[in-house]
Design a protein around this nucleic acid. Structure first.
Lengths: 233, 233
DNA sequence: TGCATATTTCTTGTCGACAAAATAAATACA
DNA sequence: TGTATTTATTTTGTCGACAAGAAATATGCA
C-alpha cells in the first residue's frame, strides 16, 4: 500500500493524474472497487501521497467516462452496472463488433495483423492457463486491436468504452462460473482474423456478429438464470 | 464582456464549472473560437471572475470530449477538424443516424413524439427565417431527440458527440454558402418522424440513411470543390 | 418518548500562492 | 554577424488552507 506514497518525490510533473486515473480505472473495472464504493478525495490523496488537486482531475476524467457518479456537494461513488437495461449494452456491443471488424477487413495494413496475431496468442495462452483476468483483458485488447486496424476513431472509442464496461460484467461472469474456459473462442478469433487478413468484408462482418451474439447469449443465459451476483442492483 | 465577471458573487457553489464548460463549448462549436485558438487559463479566470481551479476542471472535460488538445506543460488549444479523414466522421454519422432512428421507431413512447414534433417546428421556423446558426442547432436537437426516443445511451452519447462535431463542420458549410436554405430537409424530417410514429422500423431506417447520406454528399461536394475554408488544415 | 430545531462534523468546491517546464529574450563568445 | 549559453518570462501543475453544503449528531420541547 505504501509503495504508492513512496513515489512522492520521484514523480515527474504532470504524471500524477495519469497514475491515479489508470490505477483507479483498473480497480473499478476489475471490481476491486465494486459499484457503489465511496470515493473519498482526502483518502485518495493520502494513499497516493499527493494533493487533492490531481486526484480531483483524475476523478473528473473517470466521471466523464461514466465510471463514477458525482453528486454535487455530496459523495461520489463507483457507478452502478445497469442490469435492468442490459440489452442496450448488448445492442451497442454487437453493432460495434460488426462495424469495427468489417472496417478492419477493409482498411487494415500488414503491420496491424502482426499486432493482432500477437494478442491472439496472448489470449490463447490465457485460456490455456485458465487465467480469467488475463482472458478478459487480452480478449478486450485483441478486439480493440482489430478495431484500430479499421481506423475509425469514433467507433474505436465507443468500442473501447464498451469493452471496458464488459470487463466489469465478464468479471462477474467468470467469478460465478469459477473460470470455466470457452476454448471455442480461440478458434472463432482465428477465423475472424483470417477473414480480416483475406479482406473478405462480408465474411468478417458475419463472423464478428456471430461471435458477439454468442457471447451475449451466454451472458444473458447467466443473467436470466437469476444468480444473485454479489453486486446490488 | 464584463457581464460574466459581474456574476462573481451571485454564483452558486459548484455551478461555475458548468457555466464555463457550456460557454466555451458553444464558442468552440460555433467557431467563435476557431480550431487552433489558444486557451489561456489565467485569461479565462479573469474573464469569468473565478479562480483557475474551476476553469481547469471545465477544460479537462472539454479535453475528454476531444474539443481541445492539451500539450503537457505547454499550451492548450482548440482541436483541429480532421478534414483529411473526414470519411471516418461520415461513416460514423450515417450509421448513428440509421441506428438511432431505427431504435426510435421501435422503442419510442407517445410523449417522445411531442418533443420531437416541437423541435421539428423550431427547425422549420429556422429554415423559414434563414437563420443558419438556428438551423444547425435545431437540426441537431431534433435528431438527438429522436435518438433519445430510442433509449440507448451508448448510441445517443456517440451521436451527440458527432452532431456537435457536425456543428463545427456545418458552420463552415453555411459560412461559405451564405445561408442557402435546403428546404427539402424539412420534408424529409417530416417523413422520418411519420415513419417513427408509425413504428415502421425498416422505413425509418431507410429514410434516415437516405437523409444522412444526402447531407454527407452535399458536404463532400463542398469539400471536394476545394474551397479554401477560413480554417487552416 | 417522539419530533423539530440547532449544532457539529465531514466532504466537497474554491481560492491564492508557489514551483517546475518550456519558451522567449538576452548575453557572451567566436 | 551568427551561434551557443544563460537569463528572464510565461504558463502550467501542485499544494495547503479556507469556506460552503449536506449529513450526522446533539439539544430542546411537547
Amino acid at each position: 500500500m505504501d509503495n504508492e506514497t513512496s513515489l512522492r518525490n520521484e514523480r515527474k510533473r504532470g504524471s500524477g493524474v495519469k497514475v491515479v486515473y489508470d490505477i483507479l480505472r483498473d480497480e473499478i473495472l476489475d471490481l476491486e472497487l465494486p459499484p457503489g464504493s465511496p470515493i473519498d478525495e482526502v483518502q485518495l490523496s493520502e494513499r497516493f501521497g499527493m494533493s487533492r488537486t490531481p486526484i480531483r482531475e483524475a476523478l473528473v476524467r473517470l466521471a466523464g467516462e461514466g465510471l463514477i457518479d458525482t453528486l454535487p456537494n455530496r459523495s461520489t461513488m463507483v457507478s452502478q452496472i445497469d442490469f435492468l437495461n442490459m440489452h442496450n449494452y448488448f445492442d451497442a456491443l454487437v453493432l460495434m463488433y460488426r462495424v469495427t471488424t468489417q472496417l478492419a477487413a477493409k482498411y487494415h495494413r500488414p503491420e496491424d495483423l502482426e499486432a493482432v496475431r500477437a494478442l491472439q496468442a496472448d489470449f490463447a495462452a490465457a485460456v490455456e492457463a485458465q487465467d480469467a483476468l488475463a482472458m478478459i483483458s487480452t480478449n478486450a485488447a485483441l478486439h480493440l486491436a482489430i478495431a484500430e486496424a479499421g481506423r475509425n476513431p469514433y467507433f474505436t472509442s465507443l468500442f473501447s468504452r464498451l469493452l471496458n464496461e464488459g470487463r466489469r460484467i465478464l468479471r462477474l461472469y467468470y467469478q460465478s462460473y469459477n473460470d470455466r474456459l470457452p476454448r471455442r473462442f480461440v478458434e472463432e478469433h482465428d477465423e475472424i482474423i483470417d477473414a480480416v487478413a483475406g479482406r473478405d468484408i462480408e465474411l468478417a462482418e458475419r463472423l464478428a456478429r456471430e461471435h458477439a451474439e454468442q457471447i451475449v447469449a451466454q451472458i444473458q443465459k447467466l443473467l436470466v438464470r437469476g444468480d444473485r451476483l454479489d453486486v446490488r442492483l
